[in-house]
């Protein structure tokens, strides 16, 4: 008893699969080894579908342009921003961020000499492959200076309630 669904299925059989084979078509035998190989450049993975303009990915922070106004901390719904009083800058925890982009909206930024308009200290990149084993890995904490300097005596884990 042929139904409409059956014809649909036959039609789809003749089309190319819709699935996006990212990062690889089939699950590799050993995932960690595959990742290692990709890192070393011995293997290539399929590219993800390009994201549109205005995509909200990992936050980029330019401490040069930060005036320390703390507005981003005020609006951040997820409390992903932390104030570093010593340098009067902020530290951003990517794992807590929910990518709403409010901080980018409010950030006033700074006008460097020779510029006509201020440029925001915060902006959203298109980076979205953020998985990591450690939620405090270097990749997931955006900091004003190199990690050692601003860490001081503060352990990030103890700051987080």
């Amino acid at each position: 008893m042929p139904t409409k669904a059956m014809f649909l299925m036959i039609r789809q059989l003749l089309q190319r699969p819709f699935t996006n084979p990212f990062p690889v078509k089939y699950a590799p035998k050993n995932v960690t080894k595959t990742i290692e190989k990709v890192k070393l450049g011995q293997m290539s993975i399929n590219n993800p579908i390009p994201v549109p303009d205005g995509f909200r990915g990992k936050l980029k922070y330019d401490p040069e342009r930060c005036i320390g106004c703390r507005l981003c901390i005020t609006v951040c719904p997820a409390n992903a921003m932390e104030w570093i009083p010593e340098v009067r800058k902020i530290r951003h925890y990517v794992t807590r961020c929910m990518f709403c982009g409010l901080c980018v909206d409010v950030c006033p930024g700074k006008k460097l000499p020779g510029e006509t308009a201020p440029v925001k200290a915060l902006s959203m990149s298109k980076e979205f492959l953020l998985a990591d084993y450690d939620k405090y890995s270097d990749n997931l904490i955006v900091e004003p200076t190199s990690k050692e300097q601003s860490l001081n005596n503060q352990e990030p884990s103890s700051d987080q309630k």
Binding site: M9, I10, Q12, L13, Q15, P17, F18, T19, P21, K25, Y26
Partner: peptide
């Protein structure tokens, strides 16, 4: 595999 292709998926090897 064929069932997967009928539903526009790549399907298992």
């Amino acid at each position: 595999k064929i069932s997967a292709r009928m539903t526009s998926r790549i399907g298992p090897p």
